[in-house]
Design a protein around this nucleic acid. Structure first.
Length: 244
DNA sequence: AAGAGCTACAACCGCTGCTTC
DNA sequence: TGAAGCAGCGGTTGTAGCTCT
């Protein structure tokens, strides 16, 4: 299969700083893509596949390093409940994070959650709450909580929501948030910490939004079609515009 | 102090879908 | 139209560093 001539003796294992430099220079000159040309152009003894992976997961500018923030974690949890193990799709909602990183994070942090004590989860949720600034929604019960309540009563024990539940959500979204702006704000302004608290108690039965399309349609090739969004430390942004 | 166990992360592998010829 | 190559994805493995006993 592809990725260049199946040459014996491709270098494997950890990348050296020199290899990183060569790859970075190649991408600067030629842009991303044509990964199989890297070895020819630079003399790097790495397969195109390996080069792509190294660039995407480690060298690409704008990548964030370190642990996911609580808000990012919240996004990951919700997106995973929505998309399942489609890590690349989930990664699109977290600028600066890679699918590999999210996948690893999920495995090490969430897979083990089943083993962790409830007390630890409660403590964490409490910590998160303290970090959150007060939100509009807390002043009066918002429809979001009603929606969450409604949907959490549904049988969503699997990783994926049933079509019936999704349909209910779609109707709710369209009814309560007639404009895209409203829909965006409604999604982004949920108190993630409170929500995390809730979902942990529900043993990962989540209520979810489809970020791609308020009408529930998947974008072409599952790409976000309406807006892209993400978290950065303690803020949300939408298409690069700060929301709150 | 040292070995065992655990965690986090980087990297590899195999598969699939798309594009090109 | 089918074969070959390319690009990307998700699962899995290897390993360095940290913690625990």
């Amino acid at each position: 299969m592809g990725w260049g001539i199946p040459k014996q003796g491709w270098t494997k294992g950890s990348w050296t700083p020199e290899e990183d430099r060569l790859l970075s220079e190649y991408v600067k000159l030629h842009g991303e893509g044509r990964w199989n040309s890297v070895s020819k152009s630079t003399g790097l003894n790495r397969s195109g596949k390996s080069c792509r992976l190294r660039w995407v997961n480690y060298l690409r500018p704008g990548l964030k390093k370190g642990l996911l923030t609580p808000l990012e974690e919240g996004i990951v949890v919700e997106m995973h409940a929505l998309w399942g193990n489609r890590w690349s799709t989930i990664a699109r909602y977290l600028p600066g994070r890679t699918d590999n990183e999210i996948k690893n994070y999920w495995r090490t942090h969430f897979k083990k959650k089943g083993k962790s004590s409830k007390k630890q989860d409660m403590e964490k949720a409490q910590t998160l709450k303290q970090k959150q600034p007060p939100k509009k929604q807390e002043q009066e019960p918002h429809e979001d909580s009603i929606k969450r309540e409604t949907i959490s009563n549904e049988d969503t024990s699997g990783d994926q929501m049933s079509s019936e539940v999704r349909e209910k959500q779609e109707k709710f979204v369209i009814q309560e948030y007639p404009t895209l702006e409203d829909q965006c704000f409604s999604v982004m302004s949920q108190d993630v910490a409170l929500w995390l608290d809730t979902i942990r108690e529900d043993d990962f039965c989540f209520s979810l939004w489809n970020f791609d399309d308020p009408k529930g349609n998947m974008g072409h090739d599952h790409q976000p079609t309406v807006f892209s969004c993400g978290v950065d430390s303690n803020s949300f942004y939408n298409n690069g515009d700060f929301i709150f």
